[in-house]
Simulated assay, not measured.
Amino acid sequence: MQRAPTSWVIDPDDPRAPPQELWDRMTPEERQRVLDTLPSEFEISEACPPEGDFHFNPKVAARDALGGYFQRIGRRVYLACELPVYYPAERIFAPDVIAVLDVEVKERARWSVSAEGKGIDFALEILWSGSSKKDLEDNVTRYASLGISEYFVFDRKRRRLRGFRLAEGSARYQPIVPQEGRLASTVLDLDLSLEGDRLRFFHGLAPLPETHELLARLGSMVGDLEARIEETETSLDEERRRFDEERRRFDEERRRLDAERQRADEAERRLAEALAELERIKRERG
Score class of each variant (00 low, 15 high):
Met1Lys: 08
Met1Val: 13
Asp11Arg: 05
Trp23Gln: 07
Trp23His: 12
Asp24Thr: 12
Thr27Val: 02
Pro28Asn: 06
Glu29Trp: 01
Val34Arg: 06
Phe42Trp: 04
Ile44Lys: 00
Ser45Ile: 00
Ser45Lys: 00
Glu46Cys: 00
Cys48Ala: 05
Pro49Ile: 02
Pro50Gln: 04
Asp53Leu: 13
Asp53Thr: 07
His55Ser: 07
His55Ala: 10
Lys59Asn: 00
Asp64Ile: 14
Ala65His: 01
Gly67Cys: 03
Arg72His: 10
Ile73Tyr: 03
Leu79Ser: 02
Cys81Glu: 13
Arg91Asp: 08
Ile92Val: 15
Ala94Arg: 05
Asp96Cys: 02
Val97Asp: 03
Val100Tyr: 06
Leu101Trp: 01
Glu104Ile: 10
Ser112Asn: 14
Val113Cys: 08
Gly117Met: 11
Ile120Gly: 14
Gly130Glu: 12
Ser131Lys: 06
Ser132Trp: 12
Lys133Cys: 11
Lys134Phe: 09
Asp138Glu: 13
Arg142Val: 14
Tyr143Ala: 06
Ala144Leu: 11
Ser145Ala: 14
Ser145Asp: 05
Ser145Pro: 02
Gly147Leu: 05
Val153His: 07
Lys157Arg: 14
Arg159Met: 13
Leu166Arg: 02
Gln174Tyr: 00
Ile176Thr: 07
Glu180Leu: 13
Ser185Tyr: 11
Leu190Ala: 13
Leu190Thr: 09
Leu192Thr: 15
Leu194Met: 01
Leu205Cys: 11
Pro207Glu: 12
Leu208His: 11
Glu213Gly: 06
Ser220Pro: 02
Met221Arg: 14
Leu225Pro: 01
Glu230Gly: 09
Glu230Met: 03
Thr234Ser: 13
Thr234Lys: 12
Ser235Gln: 12
Ser235Glu: 12
Leu236Lys: 09
Leu236Phe: 09
Arg240Ile: 07
Phe243Cys: 08
Asp244Glu: 14
Arg247Pro: 05
Glu252Thr: 09
Glu253Cys: 04
Glu253Leu: 08
Asp258Asn: 14
Glu260Arg: 12
Ala264Met: 12
Arg269Ile: 08
Arg270Trp: 02
Glu277Pro: 04
Leu278Val: 03
Glu279Trp: 03
Lys282Arg: 15
Arg283Asn: 11
